[in-house]
């Protein structure tokens, strides 16, 4: 009883917290801020609803049967055990539905693989346990690692709203420009994932992978490493800030100047 009481308490409090802060939509895949992420979201919802409809039909038939065809209602069991037409039907119908799913999925996939006309090229390198970003064809290059203080992780201090999804140096990119990412790793496998951009790809030592994106809206988007990479796998977030083109140009020029300035002083 104690358990059940506690459970009820947790469930109700969880529901309350959710409706209060965020709402149920946050429990779904994000629609994201790119054309492709929107397509991926639509695909996800399409298949979800197809599954729901099939589920309602199959489970509906099953529950109908459970309630109607029980021994306690005094029914005598039928003895049929074969029907070629029925079996043919439920082999072919799912097949047709599957083709209906495969076509839009393939279309989206082809778009995801189109990296042509990229204007900005950024190399991402995974390390145990941080990311390095290099803006190719410039000298801008920096590391980006978790900035959440240890005290928050070890519960000695209240956790801030961006707990475990904040970094010291954000990746800054322009909106409305095609950005191509080249991914590799320095040690073990990592995976660079930002849900709002529908981008996820493995970083593999010795090999490079690529992906590209056009971000439609300025904003800060958060992601994380998605491939087990050792002790601090859960502690290597990604924060990407999309800004207007002008602001980006300003930032990249300033960063370049700053870095070459530092280089000169060192010489």
């Amino acid at each position: 009883m104690f358990l059940i009481k506690n459970l009820m308490f947790f469930i109700t409090s969880a529901l309350l917290i959710n409706t209060a802060n965020a709402g149920w939509l946050d429990l779904n895949m994000p629609e994201g801020v790119t054309d492709i992420s929107q397509e991926v979201f639509d695909l996800h919802m399409l298949i979800l609803w197809i599954c729901v409809v099939i589920g309602v039909i199959v489970f509906g038939a099953m529950f109908w049967s459970i309630f109607m065809h029980r021994k306690s209602r005094g029914v005598t069991p039928a003895q049929f055990h074969e029907s070629t037409s029925l079996e043919f039907l439920w082999t072919v119908v799912p097949f047709v539905i599957l083709i209906g799913m495969a076509i839009p999925a393939t279309k989206t996939l082809i778009k995801m693989y189109d990296h042509s006309d990229s204007e900005i090229h950024i190399k991402i390198t995974g390390y145990q346990w941080l990311w390095q970003y290099e803006y190719l064809n410039t000298n801008v290059s920096f590391y980006s690692k978790l900035s959440t203080p240890y005290n928050e992780i070890y519960n000695k201090q209240e956790k801030n709203i961006n707990y475990l999804q904040e970094v010291d140096n954000q990746l800054i990119v322009p909106v409305n420009k095609k950005i191509r990412f080249l991914l590799t790793s320095n040690d073990v496998l990592h995976a660079w994932w930002v849900p709002d951009l529908a981008l996820k790809k493995d970083a593999i030592p010795g090999y490079i992978n690529e992906m590209s994106v056009v971000i439609n809206e300025p904003g800060i988007y958060r992601g994380r490493c998605a491939e087990l990479c050792g002790r601090h796998h859960g502690f290597m977030p990604i924060v990407i800030k999309a800004v207007d083109e002008d602001e980006y140009e300003e930032w990249i020029t300033a960063s370049e100047a700053k870095i070459s300035g530092v280089a000169k002083v060192n010489k």
Partner: peptide, 16 residues
């Protein structure tokens, strides 16, 4: 499982 088979959506589901 069927949802996971859809490659573009799998990019979002994979390893979550």
């Amino acid at each position: 499982g069927l949802m996971l088979a859809i490659t573009p959506a799998d990019f979002q589901y994979h390893d979550t």
